[in-house]
Amino acid sequence: MSIHFILGGARSGKSAYAEQLAKIQTQPVTYIATARADDVEMQARIQHHQAQRPENWATLEVSENLGLVLNKLKADACVIVDCLTLWMMNCFAQHPKLNTQAIDAFVEALNSFEGDLILVSNEISMGVVPMGALSRDYVDALGRLHQQIAARADRVTLMVAGLPMTVK
């Protein structure tokens, strides 16, 4: 069992790198997609990502109960979660205040997951502090989640301009 945490900015190559790693795995791959197709542009992004994946990969669309879904997956699987940034946004959209129950359930599922897990997320905390309280709450919550995952992860990679930079 291992956790590989992949961080980076928008269009840094995170998803492509995660998919490359999964393609060399011998066990079955499950791709957990967290994006919601709420507009035409997001629909196009989702279709692009879908076209990149091998047909034999199982795909699950999960917008909120990520911990529950992870708990149901088999130990001999390779699972990609793409991406935690959108998942956290979905949690905030459902619950205007921080959804600590969903986050705690996800972290608990990480601790008990027995397969290989590739987690993808945007590193959004390298810029200015957001002006609005809700935006600050989101950035703070995502940053804290990233710290918990990085502490638990076997490997952490920061993607910069399509290049994987080993952090841990």
Rank of each mutant, 00 (worst) to 15 (best):
E41K: 05
Q43F: 07
Q43W: 08
A44R: 09
Q47C: 09
H48Q: 14
H48R: 15
Q50I: 01
Q50N: 11
A51T: 00
A51W: 06
A51V: 02
Q52F: 03
P54N: 00
E55P: 03
E55V: 03
A58I: 10
A58M: 13
A58E: 11
L60H: 09
L60Q: 12
E61G: 00
E61V: 00
E61K: 02
V62D: 05
V62E: 14
S63V: 11
S63H: 12
S63Y: 06
N65T: 12
N65V: 10
L66K: 06
G67S: 06
L68A: 08
V69T: 08
L70I: 03
L70A: 03
L70E: 04
N71Q: 12
D76R: 06
A77K: 11
A77Q: 15
C78E: 11
C78W: 10
V79T: 02
V81F: 15
D82R: 01
D82F: 04
D82W: 02
D82A: 05
D82N: 10
L84R: 03
L84K: 05
T85C: 04
L86W: 14
M88Q: 08
C91K: 01
F92H: 03
A93K: 15
A93E: 08
A93N: 13
H95A: 11
P96K: 13
K97P: 04
K97E: 14
L98H: 11
N99I: 00
Q101D: 09
I103N: 07
I103Q: 13
D104N: 15
A105G: 12
F106L: 05
F106M: 07
V107H: 11
V107D: 08
E108G: 06
S112P: 06
F113E: 02
F113W: 07
E114L: 14
E114K: 14
D116H: 12
D116R: 11
D116V: 11
L117Q: 01
L117S: 01
I118G: 01
L119H: 02
V120K: 01
V120A: 01
V120L: 10
S121N: 00
E123F: 02
I124W: 13
I124E: 11
S125A: 14
S125D: 10
M131P: 05
G132T: 14
A133D: 15
L134C: 09
L134Y: 06
S135K: 08
D137I: 04
Y138W: 09
D140N: 04
A141P: 01
L142D: 03
L142T: 00
G143E: 05
R144M: 12
H146G: 01
H146A: 04
Q147L: 06
Q147R: 09
Q148I: 06
Q148N: 10
Q148L: 12
I149T: 05
A150T: 03
A151P: 05
A151Q: 12
R152N: 11
